[in-house]
Amino acid sequence: MVELPHEMKAVLLTEVGVDFKLIDACIPVPKLSDQEVLVKIEYVGLTGLDAKFVQQGTPCWQYPRVFGLDAVGVVVAGPKGGHPEVGARVMWHNDIASEGVLSEYVKVPNFALTVLPADINPALAASLPTPGMTALIALYKLQLEEGDTIFIESGNTCVGQLAVQMAYQQGLTVITSSPKQCTTALKKLGAELVLDENETDIGQKIQKHFGYDTVHGVIDMSGKYTNKLLEFLQFCGRISCVSGLATLDETLLFKKAPNIGIVSLPGAWLAKSICAQQRMSFLGNVLTDYLQQEQLCLSEKEVIAFDAVSIYDALIARINGNSHFYQVVKVA
């Protein structure tokens, strides 16, 4: 039995907003309850969801609080004979209502964990839960078939890059938007047509290339242009909204009759649905399979030091749009 310390280093979020604040702290190592394991954190992924919540917060949070949602680490304590076993390396997307993962140790419900095979790079795995699960859920909600056409907004983002690759591997025809400098890279990932995100007539360009009424599904990343995206969706097509639901044009809704799906990873925890939480473990297994089969190409990974200043700077770069890299904090 490994002797555990009584205190640990952590990074706490003390204020949210444009001027959010992170501090370094020393706090007690958490105590376990039934169906929980204690994980020694190795890497924490920073994502667009982290950038959103440091600015907006959520009603279930009290401050100061340990920050962070995605992690990889090694199980160091848990119920005797439980799963996963002590010594297993695990990956997960954390409960938004509980303390975060930017600390040396975290307690986690064992049913939400994905056990990582020994040949998976833990730093790479830590960057995947939020963007990878978001991309998978968005695609599942569209229920598209091989040969269908999908439009993925902002294919240059971490979620977008993964969605492009997954959609291509499902046999879908992939159209995406991005800054011009990302065109070549996205075509290598599987996009057949990459449109400049600043184009005002994206729908016309799609029609010119593929014909009228040919987009069967859309992944709406930002929520800023939902009505425009609906305009070139076929009648009764499907749209997955990653950033919530915008105010929709009622005339357009009558014209298109879209099937609208909302993607919410935190919702699995906030709804207290054990079934939904267990599904996150299943999604983690799907992502692990992608990695083992070398079917995902991830853009450059940025490794960040485990201190409040470095993490703050990394989040600011993401908020300002200066980083679409996969960012991971090296904790141990």
Results as ranks from 00 to 15, higher is better:
2 V>D: 02
5 P>C: 07
10 A>L: 01
11 V>T: 08
12 L>H: 04
13 L>N: 02
14 T>G: 12
17 G>N: 09
20 F>N: 07
20 F>C: 01
24 D>T: 02
32 L>V: 06
34 D>V: 13
34 D>Y: 08
35 Q>E: 11
36 E>D: 00
39 V>Y: 00
41 I>S: 07
43 Y>E: 06
46 L>S: 04
47 T>F: 02
49 L>M: 10
54 V>H: 01
56 Q>F: 15
63 Y>E: 03
64 P>N: 13
69 L>N: 03
75 V>R: 00
76 V>M: 06
78 G>H: 01
82 G>M: 11
83 H>S: 12
84 P>I: 09
86 V>K: 10
92 W>S: 03
94 N>I: 04
94 N>D: 12
95 D>G: 09
98 S>H: 01
99 E>K: 12
102 L>S: 01
106 V>A: 11
106 V>K: 09
113 L>C: 10
117 P>G: 04
118 A>I: 09
119 D>Q: 10
130 T>D: 07
132 G>S: 09
135 A>G: 09
138 A>E: 02
147 G>K: 07
149 T>G: 11
150 I>A: 00
161 Q>H: 08
166 M>F: 07
167 A>S: 13
168 Y>V: 08
172 L>S: 06
173 T>F: 09
175 I>K: 06
181 Q>D: 15
181 Q>M: 14
181 Q>N: 13
182 C>T: 12
183 T>K: 15
183 T>Y: 13
184 T>P: 05
185 A>Q: 11
186 L>V: 02
187 K>E: 14
189 L>M: 15
190 G>K: 01
195 L>S: 12
209 H>A: 11
211 G>E: 05
214 T>I: 13
219 I>K: 07
220 D>M: 05
220 D>C: 14
224 K>R: 11
230 L>F: 01
232 F>R: 02
235 F>P: 02
235 F>A: 01
239 I>E: 00
240 S>L: 01
240 S>G: 10
244 G>T: 04
247 T>V: 09
248 L>G: 01
249 D>H: 00
250 E>N: 11
250 E>L: 15
251 T>M: 07
251 T>V: 00
253 L>S: 03
256 K>W: 11
257 A>Q: 15
260 I>E: 04
261 G>C: 10
264 S>N: 05
266 P>M: 03
273 S>I: 04
274 I>G: 04
274 I>T: 07
280 M>L: 15
282 F>V: 12
285 N>C: 08
285 N>L: 01
286 V>K: 08
288 T>G: 08
288 T>I: 06
289 D>Y: 00
289 D>A: 06
297 C>I: 12
302 E>I: 07
308 A>E: 06
308 A>F: 03
309 V>Y: 12
310 S>E: 11
311 I>P: 02
316 I>L: 03
325 F>C: 11
327 Q>P: 01
332 A>N: 14
